[in-house]
Amino acid sequence: MTETETPVEHAAATRTTLLEAQDLHVDFASRGRRARAVDGVNLAIGEGEIVALVGESGCGKTTLARTLLGLERPSSGTVRYGGAPLSYDSRSLKAYRREVQLVLQDPTGSLNPRHTVYEAVAEGPRIHGLPDEEKVVADALSRAGLRPPERFFLRYPHELSGGQRQRVVIAGALALNPRVLVADEPVASLDASVRGEILALMLKLRADLGLSALVVTHDLGLAWNIADRVAVMYLGRIVESGPVEQVLTAPRHPYTQALMSVLPESPERVILTGEPPDPTRIPGGCRFHARCQVLASGRAEEAGVAARCRTEPLEILPAVPTAQEACHYAALNP
């Protein structure tokens, strides 16, 4: 460990990268224009690491997650798993999706109401032809905290609580013995009293099984409680990233500062100006400048970077474990 590295940064730097996005771009046609949903993203998830991807609705985080899962093909750039580029033929994708599993945010919508818990969890093992199906299902339910598992085999989703349904969804992912979970707003639909239980479960799975996870969320409190590192996304690009405690206790990008300001303990609320982001009309210069409170307050002008904020694009952030941000104003005080 170097003199300037924190223990968290050193641990992140020494982890083997398992899943990675390299200069990823994903475009969609939208009303005769191209929407740049993901517009140049580098992101790495190490073995046994939990990374939180945070941002407003529409910033591109779900599209990025779907692309990492192989559900969307990038317009350019590469998804790499275990050091190798992702192949999109059906056989390769089937093998990949056994290793990298999705956990959806709405267990009610993702579970078939006509299927029992057993059938829901057994679906993946059947598709992949795994032996000892009943043992696989029982083990997955047990790891997800539904014990004794046999008690849940013949139950239907409507007979379960919200937390139990989410555990069934997690069990369905665990049944394939994956190495990475991609969890899209995993506790957004749950009562506050249950959220802590699901977060504790995910941390236990990491400790017991060595699982890695990408947790997609708009909830900075969730990121604080579960993640090792956080990546903040705005208008298709990561604008700040680093160890979660460093980024969330001392955010440097104005957008991250605005997101943090809505938390109850924040001393000052930041009200963003301008229109919400439109991925078909990405502005020149810093993509956040039209809503930036630092620019609007005149502080960027005083620092002599206002013109650069409006006209000079920022470099795409690399996938590194140390704290970094894409901001002309913050760059004045590294």
Rank of each mutant, 00 (worst) to 15 (best):
A331K: 15
P74A: 01
N42S: 12
V117E: 00
M233A: 11
I127G: 07
T78A: 08
V239C: 03
E150C: 08
P321Y: 01
A323K: 07
T280F: 00
L209R: 07
E197I: 05
V169L: 11
V169K: 03
G48E: 12
I316R: 11
G221M: 07
V168K: 01
E72C: 05
A300W: 03
L235P: 01
D132C: 06
S189R: 02
V194H: 05
A183D: 14
G236L: 03
P131H: 04
H115M: 15
S241A: 15
T256S: 13
P186R: 02
T311D: 14
R229P: 03
R97I: 04
L211G: 03
G82E: 06
G145D: 13
V305C: 11
R33M: 09
L130E: 12
I316W: 05
E312G: 05
E20A: 11
E3A: 15
D39Y: 01
S75Y: 00
R31P: 03
A175F: 02
Y329C: 06
I282R: 07
Y255I: 13
Y88K: 13
A207D: 15
P107R: 00
S76K: 12
L190S: 04
I282T: 08
R98Y: 13
D132K: 11
P178A: 04
G304F: 10
P254C: 12
R179G: 08
V230I: 10
R36T: 03
E72D: 11
A171T: 06
L86T: 08
L272V: 04
R114S: 11
E134G: 08
D23M: 02
A319I: 06
C286Y: 02
H328K: 10
E3S: 15
M233Y: 00
V216H: 00
L203H: 07
R308L: 09
G109E: 03
V270H: 00
L248Y: 06
V182L: 13
A21C: 12
H10I: 11
E123F: 09
G274N: 12
C286N: 00
D219P: 13
T4D: 08
Q105H: 13
L222V: 15
E302T: 15
T17R: 05
R291Q: 03
A95Q: 13
G236V: 05
E268H: 06
V180S: 05
V26S: 13
N225V: 04
V244L: 07
L211W: 09
A258E: 00
G55P: 03
P85F: 06
F152H: 04
D219F: 05
L53I: 06
Y81C: 02
C292G: 07
E240Y: 02
Y234D: 12
E119V: 10
G304N: 14
V137C: 03
T217H: 06
S189Q: 08
T67M: 05
P186G: 07
E197Y: 00
